[in-house]
Structures are given as C-alpha cells and as structure tokens.
C-alpha cells in the first residue's frame, strides 16, 4: 500500500491544527527523510499531508479519504514515523488541504496512506 515508504522525522508542524470537527481537512507537515524503503525520493525534506491530524490514524478513514490508517496516535515534532505515501496528494485525496508551506514550496506534497510511530 503506497508507492513510497519512508522512515522520517517529523521536523515541523507549522501553525496549529484547527479543532473543528465539522470540517475535515488534511494538514501538510514537514519531514526529514531518514531512510527510503520503497520508491524513489530524491529530497531529504518532504512535505506530507495527514488527514484529520487531531485523531489517531486508526480512526480517520472515511469516504473522502479512502483506506488510510496506522498506529500513530498523536503528531509530535521530533518523533520518527514510518509512512507509506502517494504523490501528489491531489491525485489521492479530494478534500480540504491546509498547506502552510504553499508560498515557499511548490513541489509535490505527499499523501500519508498509513503512518506508524517508530519506537527508538
């Protein structure tokens, strides 16, 4: 599942996740790539959109997102995640996308299919 798979450190969450259960969205976060397990990713920094970031990954899938998941419960800067990805996000997710990096980065944004916390 996912054309790409990486282990990456969540290096920045810019801004705050809106706490509005009425409106679902994906939020774009910044990662430092530590290891690429599947696919070709040339950059050490990637931008990844996570759906409903305030909820555990196991509880976010719906008709809008399709099949997504993982064991991560909370997004914390500095944590390491193993993530299955697709790109670009617009080809895999049809919904609101909040991208705080849109003015400084115009490359592909990845879509997080599943996200597991790496225990180090």
């Amino acid at each position: 599942m996912g054309s790409y798979e990486v282990t990456a450190k969540l290096s920045e969450i810019r801004g705050e996740f809106p706490d509005d259960p009425l409106y679902d969205y994906a939020y774009v976060m910044k990662y430092e790539v530590m290891q690429v397990h599947r696919g070709t990713i040339d950059s050490n920094v990637i931008y990844v959109g996570h759906y409903k970031p305030l909820k555990p990954r196991s509880a976010v899938a719906d008709v809008r997102s399709g099949e997504i998941g993982g064991n991560l419960k909370t997004f914390r800067v500095g944590d390491t995640h193993r993530i299955a990805l697709e790109a670009p996000i617009e080809d895999y997710f049809m919904g609101g996308i909040m991208n705080p990096y849109s003015e400084e980065y115009s490359g592909p944004v990845y879509w997080a299919v599943w996200t597991n916390l790496v225990i180090q």
């Binding site: 609101g96 909040m98 705080p100 990096y101 849109s102 003015e103």
Partner: peptide
Amino acid sequence: GNVQGKNW
C-alpha cells in the same frame, strides 16, 4: 476547492 494552501 483549495487555493494557495488555503481550503474552502
């Protein structure tokens, strides 16, 4: 849609 990093 989404425009320039903003949704809605």
